[in-house]
Amino acid sequence: MRRPGLGAERLIGLFLIGAIGFSPPVLTLFNKAILVAGIPLLYLYLFGLWVLLVALAGIVVTQLVPTGEDKPPPPANEEGPR
């Protein structure tokens, strides 16, 4: 049984990876005007990390379970009067 809220916390973890990975200090490591496999290194890194983050997010969202307090409001309140 997975701990409720774990999915959401993993997403926050991905956010932190992204926030650090896209920050200038890390970027300077790849900030060189050279081509790797015919593609500029910086772009290779940026798009690679980007794709990785989104793919992981796609896996993690399947683990998101609304816990008790997270139950959405009843439909009556969503729709409103017609």
Binding site: G7, A8, L11, I12, L14, F15, G18, A19, F22, W50, L53, V54, A57, V61, L64
Partner: peptide, 8 residues
């Protein structure tokens, strides 16, 4: 992208 990772 970062904001949507925090979306939930």
């Amino acid at each position: 992208t970062l904001v949507f990772l925090l979306g939930w």
